[in-house]
Nucleic acid binder design. Structure first.
Lengths: 335, 335
DNA sequence: TATTAGCACTGAAATAATATGAGTGCTAAT
DNA sequence: ATTAGCACTCATATTATTTCAGTGCTAATA
């Protein structure tokens, strides 16, 4: 891979990203000061290496997944933001009333908007969250709300209709007990400790202990399974991309984007990697026809994942530039 | 409109709903024991009245919006559920641990699943909800969560990072004041009363009263604008319908379904009508190419709206049957 | 040895020509 | 009031034809 071959591949990838049309040899003559035949020879070589592909024998070249990967790893330079985009993001971070995690969510909305890709923010893993407090609020003699709050400030709640004869006072007593004994426990372990430490105590002291126990158990288990930690924006934005000008492809992807359990996979791969990660096509577990660009942060002691979902022909320079910018802003704030 | 004309229209609408293909005269001869020419004469008459349409001069007939409307109002009989569907819904209502409002949400998910239409549940209008309690939970010396709970059991929360020198004790004091003075106030009026009744008091007694005042103000205003009262399922289901085998149409609708403010319009029209309402095409404010079937309930003193969004060629009998069934189950529970 | 002009060849995509058939409206007979 | 009969219409499918941007390869050239 001499310099000209590198430049050629770079040019082809970037042209294809812009135009979504196979790149022919003639169109590159001017840029490389040589004839189309020379370009064709070089192209044939790049195809042999697996970096380029053809749709049919006489079509122009398009980058292969391997080609994109090589481009991303060796040829691409992250873009520095243009003034307009920077301004938009700056105003969000400048607002000091905004919690950092909300600022990130808003940024991703903007990014989705200006790039026409889908964006995702994943956060508050139950394992990072410790129980801060459970409160019981009575609505009327039959109904109560149980509110669980974690040390990271995440709140979930659930309403219960009480069975005949449940004692509100006892309910409050148990909630005090739970607060005394279990505050500081990782949320996903609360269920277990409830069983082992709380149940034996209330079994002796409380009349309808089963009913009451179940209320607490339910309130916590809902927290662990809740979906409130996924925030997606521009779910339909990606369909503006020309590769989805095909109904079946569109439906397939739309369905996947509905399925939150699918989305959550994004944070699992390369779990501890805090760098900008780019998963192209087959490389990502979500869908072989998209690229996912991901970045993880730790904010206020809690891991947060942001990701952009777009076609394989994504504007890598721009997205990486945008994510780098967000990273800088977060660093600044973190001080 | 003699009886045969009614039957003919009914037959055409129902056939078209099933087959999505224009209905020709020949195919109806057997059912009506007459020749295709007779059917054609009748069809021409129904077209004159505006109940039927043609795609082109020599195509079969399809129902017009007016035709659907006439069908829905005069010809249709709501279906009684088949065993399988009924079983699915029954198991949901049979689970007495489930709050009624959650049961409804689950039902709508099932309905979306079995019918391939999109379903929506709209609830907890801020005007119906009265303040039950506001709690302040401290996460660390700099951060707190404000949790607002209403008498209907709806909870919203917001995390705040405190400005240097904000006194936690004073914050708690103000929260007690708010609880003492404003409990029972409709949520959407709390902001105003905060300004008129609380501000003057704390102005005198609290040092950094502006900061503290803003925390409360923000916590409540978020509640009013929150989207947590919309629950949609099967957002992509409607695309299984053959009328959306068209990319632009699909995109258009997908975008509308993303926009929550659009969806919320469904509850506003004919605001107090508790009957099953059917809005066909131009009749609904959401989109001229869909039908919306809506039903409102009052559950635990709070209004809840459910709606099904499908093509104009919706299976009206089935959907109305399903909604009627849900209605019955709710009545039963309400006792 | 690297480059390039030249040329035959490919295959997608657009355009045109043609056939098919399900449906209609209308007229005149029953 | 119904219907057989017939000319007519238009969407849809099929096939043939053309166009053109692109290729690979060979042989000449710098």
């Amino acid at each position: 891979m001499d310099e000209r071959k590198n430049n050629l591949l770079k040019e082809i990838v970037e042209t294809y990203i812009k135009t979504v049309k196979p790149v022919g040899s003639k169109s590159l003559c001017d840029k490389f000061n040589c004839s189309s035949a020379t370009i064709r020879n070089e192209m044939a070589y790049l195809e042999e290496l697996g970096y380029l592909e053809k749709n049919h024998i006489s079509s122009g070249r398009i980058p292969s997944e391997k080609g994109y990967k090589y481009y991303v790893e060796n040829l691409m330079k992250a873009e520095t933001l243009n003034g307009k985009d920077m301004l938009k993001l700056q105003t969000i971070f400048a607002n000091s009333n905004l919690q950092l995690s909300d600022a990130i969510t808003q940024c991703m909305e903007i990014i989705s908007d200006i790039t026409n890709y889908t964006s995702v923010v994943l956060g508050n893993n139950s394992k990072d969250n410790l129980l801060r407090q459970i409160s019981i609020i009575t609505l009327n003699p039959n109904q109560i709300v149980a509110i669980v709050c974690t040390d990271k400030g995440h709140v979930e709640n659930k309403t219960f209709t009480l069975k005949e004869g449940t004692d509100l006072l006892e309910l409050t007593k148990v909630s005090e007990l739970v607060n005394k004994k279990l505050v500081g426990t990782p949320i996903d372990e609360v269920g277990e400790r409830l069983e082992l430490e709380i149940k034996p105590i209330i079994q002796k002291q409380v009349k309808h202990y089963e009913t009451i126990y179940n209320i607490f158990y339910d309130a916590f288990s809902d927290f662990v399974t809740s979906n409130s930690n996924v925030h997606m924006s521009g779910r339909t934005k990606i369909f503006e991309q020309p590769e989805y000008n095909n109904i079946d492809e569109m439906k397939r992807l739309a369905n996947k984007l509905e399925d939150m359990s699918f989305i959550k996979k994004i944070e699992k791969i390369d779990n501890n990697d805090k760098e900008v990660k780019i998963y192209i096509g087959e490389e990502n577990e979500f869908d072989a026809n998209v690229t996912i660009i991901r970045k993880k942060f730790v904010i206020d002691g809690e891991e947060k994942t942001i990701a952009i979902i777009g076609p394989k022909r994504m504007d890598y320079q721009r997205i990486v530039g945008l994510l780098n910018y967000i990273d800088e802003e977060i660093e600044k704030r973190g001080e």
